[in-house]
């Protein structure tokens, strides 16, 4: 497997509080990599560290051959490492289209934004219907689609999805889970942190179980799906 993102012994956290205690993982090219674990295990912290929102204390993050752990977040975005944050952080007072446009502020995506936005509307026709509406007035599911669409506007090579179905109606969650595998066809690697263990392992090529800031199990998605120890770890 060719790794697009390689994580070597990452430690990070919030100030004095260390959350990640040496993470080793790979994200394959155009593959879905799942990150599962209970609340507080360090899933969000890992994604935020990879995106550069949190500083890396020690360890290396390799994007291809390049070390990126010291780059600020906007330079990682420019390299195509893009996070869709937990809680659908859309810009409430901007319209749907303006939100999408902010997703394309990085150098690679800027000039082709009008082409990318059409592809995003093809993927999420609902967003086209709501084009002029303020993002704050959208439903939870629509906001998640917008957050996802905004991430795609940046032309990701690696898309970091933090709990994309959290708090969504089951039918909307299903829709999101149907769309994610389509993205790998556009050569996007996906690292997804998710509470819905079974569904995420169904679509993932490979998965990691994280407990107390360490990777405790790793296997193909289907193998983890059938491993009873995973469910146990998940329950904490």
């Amino acid at each position: 497997m060719n790794a697009r993102l390689k994580v070597e012994g990452i430690r990070s956290g919030y100030g004095e509080i260390q959350v990640l205690r040496g993470i080793e993982m790979l994200c394959g090219e155009a593959q879905i990599t799942a990150l599962v674990g209970s609340n507080g295990a360090g899933k969000s912290t890992l994604l935020r560290t990879l995106a550069g929102i949190l500083p890396t204390a020690t360890g290396r993050i390799l994007h291809g051959e390049a070390e990126i752990q010291r780059l600020p977040s906007h330079e990682r975005v420019a390299r195509g490492i893009i996070m869709v944050p937990e809680g659908r952080l859309v810009f409430p007072d901007l319209s749907v289209e303006e939100n999408l446009r902010t997703g394309a502020v990085n150098v690679r995506a800027r000039d082709v934004w009008s082409k990318t936005v059409k592809e995003v509307y093809d993927l999420f026709p609902r967003l086209l219907e709501r084009q002029k509406q303020l993002a704050g007035t959208l439903s939870g599911g629509e906001q998640q689609m917008l957050a996802l669409g905004r991430g795609l506007m940046g032309l990701p090579e690696v898309l970091l999805l933090d709990e994309p179905t959290l708090g969504l109606a089951p039918s909307v969650a299903t829709q999101i889970f149907n769309i994610i595998p389509q993205l790998t066809e556009s050569n996007i690697s996906i690292l997804i942190a998710e509470q819905d263990l079974n569904r995420v392992l169904d679509i993932a090529h490979f998965g990691y179980v994280i407990e107390n800031g360490r990777i405790t199990m790793q296997d193909t998605g289907s193998a983890l799906r059938n491993n009873p120890a995973v469910a146990e770890a998940y329950l904490g």
Binding site: P72, S73, L89, V90, L94
Partner: peptide
């Protein structure tokens, strides 16, 4: 573009960072 970046920072600073606005 600088001004739009500032507006986006006001709206949500973490989200601004994730879309690639050099916040600081």
């Amino acid at each position: 573009r600088f001004g739009r970046g500032l507006t986006v920072i006001r709206e949500d600073e973490v989200a601004a960072a994730t879309v690639g606005v050099p916040v600081l």
